[in-house]
Design a protein around this nucleic acid. Structure first.
Lengths: 336, 336
DNA sequence: CACGCCTTGGCAATCGATTACACGGATGGT
DNA sequence: ACCATCCGTGTAATCGATTGCCAAGGCGTG
């Protein structure tokens, strides 16, 4: 098994371990002949180095940790892909963890990442309050960037979407389509984006004179969207529109509508949030808010790289602008 | 920053580092009073240990690496979640990498994981031939389990689905529905599952007397499914059924059908493979093959744990049985 | 009372790579 | 011809935790 060490290489090449290290890492120049000898010896032996030992000595791992509430949610997988891509170009690896929307598990993941000496952390925190302690602790240990959601009172960078603007786009679009009453389906989680979306919904519906019929809170899942819509259907006359805090919920809503014989958009308009790939494939295709995921990911990595540098900058918050993608769920029925 | 070491704790508690290590890890008993003192000192200082140093000394990281072709594909995310869950119960962490369906990137990931001294690797290899070298090398370094797909000639465990049985289920269902001609849309990748699915399609259509009209190869994506279906539509009379090698392709096919005014299932039947969550939400809902992902994940972790133990067992191959989920894309139209 | 076992804690080696420091030889300038 | 550099290389300390070995003290037994 992989037990060939730098010492073995040094012996075979007839040089010291220091020279081998320098030859292979290029930290300092070695003579061409020695370089050749060492490289060949390493190849012959199948030397692959011991990243652990290297990390211990250099006290950096060239690895950043990422913690997301769910890797099954396509929004987060897109974010993860973006971050991984951006990191790769900086020569770093990504260590991915899922907190399963559980603050305790999240705290455990953070401890684990810190113990493993990752160079920095990108996290989308689960809960506005119950995530705070672990997050504040981790922020004291190493550079940390929050993405999408943020926990107030933690002294770290954040990059995400402008939720207020997003709901302004949605509500204006609905109002312009003649909607006069609406329900909102979201999650019980109290975190920044969830709360800002409710707040934005409330504010902008008020501004446009749309009556708020219901605000149903559950979780970010297809199942919850389905259940919430079933409740709305059972409760009596439907609002003109159902606004969902993410696309998974909206997909569940559409499914429940189909099952209950409610026509979308004829009987009710439905909107989502995130523009996951499946939002365009539903029946009907979903009007939703597109998040600039790649930009968010890139910016997060940029901020993290900056924080890994020498000087400490004050925490940055950047809210990127979303855009509205109008599809059949709020327009004329294309599938008829 | 996190620079409190075991030495600091030892000093504050007035004992040796050896005692601190033993007190905190429980490797050997310490007296109750010392345990108390040490625990308090560690808490006071916020000591969190240095996993890197520990890993170097113990030469294990309690971490396993996982490499998948894509984390955007819901099938793999489900697999990843299953593996993570199973590992967590064994007290291990998951280090997740994406190979982006690129054998070179895959090789790089494998090298990186080996250098980081993960205890074992779970991988769904990209390519039946171009993945072999890196996989064989890694298998020589540490325990490795292949999932879903496998590369022949690598001496490792494998767990996946019975692809032949899966296509038997699909083709029998289609034949029983009166289909007499069919096309197959898959990926150009030459790996076990891709090839076994084509082989199964060919074999079972022949057995049931279904004419094979086309076999289109591209990649596992919605975009390719869409494009392939456009080609079929443009090429002339459609076959009775279109069988897809995964659900993403099938979703793309459905989208292309909708765009081209081809009615599913009235004009053509469509089937997928994997039963991702979005397969039930498409228009129409997709008939597909359900993979026992959780069982695959659990079995993979079980095999890995076994391989981490003392004795070497011969490589195991286990093909788990899939099941057919029949929905509207091959049945009577429910959405009308 | 004497002897040996068992428990508990410390000393120091160890894991494998990196790097500060030192040294010898070659080079170039005056 | 002599001295100052500079380049390439080796020696050994270092990163932080774990653990083999040993010693001291407590206890029970003959």
């Amino acid at each position: 098994m992989g037990r060939v060490t730098i010492r073995d290489v040094a012996e075979r090449a007839g040089v010291s371990t220091a020279t081998v290290s320098r030859a292979l890492s290029g930290a300092r120049p070695v003579s061409p002949s020695v370089l050749e000898t060492v490289t060949r010896a390493a190849d012959d032996l199948g030397y692959s180095g011991n990243g652990i030992a290297s990390a211990l000595r250099r006290s950096r791992t060239d690895t950043v940790g990422m913690v997301v509430p769910s890797i099954a949610n396509p929004f987060f997988t897109a974010l993860v892909e973006g971050v991984e891509h951006a990191l790769q170009q900086a020569g770093r690896q990504l260590f991915l963890c899922s907190s399963r929307s559980d603050p305790d598990l999240e705290a455990q993941r953070l401890r684990s990442l810190v113990a493993r000496q990752v160079d920095g952390i990108v996290i989308s925190p689960v809960h506005g309050i119950r995530s705070r302690e672990a997050l504040a602790w981790a922020t004291g240990q190493l550079p940390l960037v929050q993405v999408d959601r943020y926990v107030a009172g933690v002294d770290s960078d954040w990059v995400g979407v402008d939720d207020d603007l997003a709901l302004r786009l949605v509500v204006d679009h609905l109002a312009d389509s003649g909607v006069t009453s609406a329900a909102f389906i979201s999650s019980t989680l109290t975190n920044s984006s969830t709360e800002l979306r409710v707040a934005g919904f409330t504010e902008h519906t008020a501004r446009r004179g749309i009556a708020v019929r219901d605000v149903l809170l559950g979780e970010y899942s297809i199942a919850w969207g389905r259940e919430a819509m079933q409740r709305l259907v059972a409760a009596g006359p439907l609002p003109d529109a159902v606004v969902c805090a993410d696309d998974l919920i909206a997909l569940g809503v559409l499914q429940a509508c189909a099952a209950a014989g409610v026509a979308v958009p004829a009987d009710v308009l439905v909107t989502g949030f995130d523009d996951i790939p499946y939002a365009a494939l539903s029946d009907p295709p979903l009007t939703t808010v597109r998040q600039p995921q790649d930009d968010i990911a890139e910016e997060a990595v940029r901020l993290l790289s900056a924080a890994l540098g020498p000087h400490r900058a004050p925490p940055a918050r950047s809210a990127l602008a979303p855009s509205l993608v109008v599809r059949a769920s709020t327009g004329v029925s294309a599938s008829g």
